[in-house]
Amino acid sequence: MLSESDEQGTVFDEEEPGKYLEDAVDEPSRVRPAIEFRDVHLSFDDVTILNGISFSVRKGETKIILGRSGGGKSTIIRLVLGLLKPDSGTILIDGEDITYYNEEQMMGVRQKIGMVFQEGALFDSLSVFENVAYRLIERGVAYEEVEPEVRRMLRFVDLEDAIDKMPDELSGGMRRRVGIARALIGDPQIVLFDEPTAGLDPPTARTICELAIKLRDLQDVSSIFVTHEMNNLRYLSSEYATVDDEGKVIFEKEGEKLCLINTEVMMIRDGQINFSGTDEKLEHTDDPYIRTFIYGK
């Protein structure tokens, strides 16, 4: 991951700069979407939550889902994880049709996915270490292997000092960051963020967006980022992470040098996709609903 230079080496090859791109195009797993929804419908009693949702998230892409609270954004994430089942339609994860998978079958699929919950959803009775190590302990990984992994993840979210603390000793922002570390352990190739910055102060929200950017640009992780905060959209769709000459991660704004094509925005309204495209297209749209959402008037 970030601290491991050998893994970053797979992203950039100085001798053959074009090789990575060629490999990427030839590799079937890159062409196959990491997440795909095909005409998904879901209702609770008489209330329609999702009404014919179709979209896909490519490998290494971040899909930002915008929409009002209670508009079905988090439902999409719960469907990806198989915590809910659609009334009709198809959901594919990494090309695998999981729509009618039972709980046991979903357990295998969920190993590929990391999830960051709205309020962190840390296990109250477990320490930070045990929370982050949870997935590995459940898989029966030996303690000697678990500890360095947990430390690596906590370093990634800059919380190594909190390793022995209990969740109730942490601030809201720290809880979210521990939640991110917990979601990333085991190096899942898909990470789902369910309003990870809700209720946080702007600097902490920015830190969490930076973590999502690092995952996207340095680790090739596919993600869905559910939010209703426009600041998150601005950070995620206009900045990218790279490594400078000293090996330090820096964030730069897209511009003449580089244009971000691995981030798309999708807006949900009344259970349907109201908009799908880049942030630039979103900003220039004439749709009054979207303009109200973006500019607040």
Binding site: R110, A121, L122, R139
Partner: peptide
């Protein structure tokens, strides 16, 4: 209510 059960299921635990 604090989504810990969902988290448990999401991390592959029944």
């Amino acid at each position: 209510v604090s989504q810990q059960i969902d988290a448990m299921r999401a991390f592959g635990t029944n």
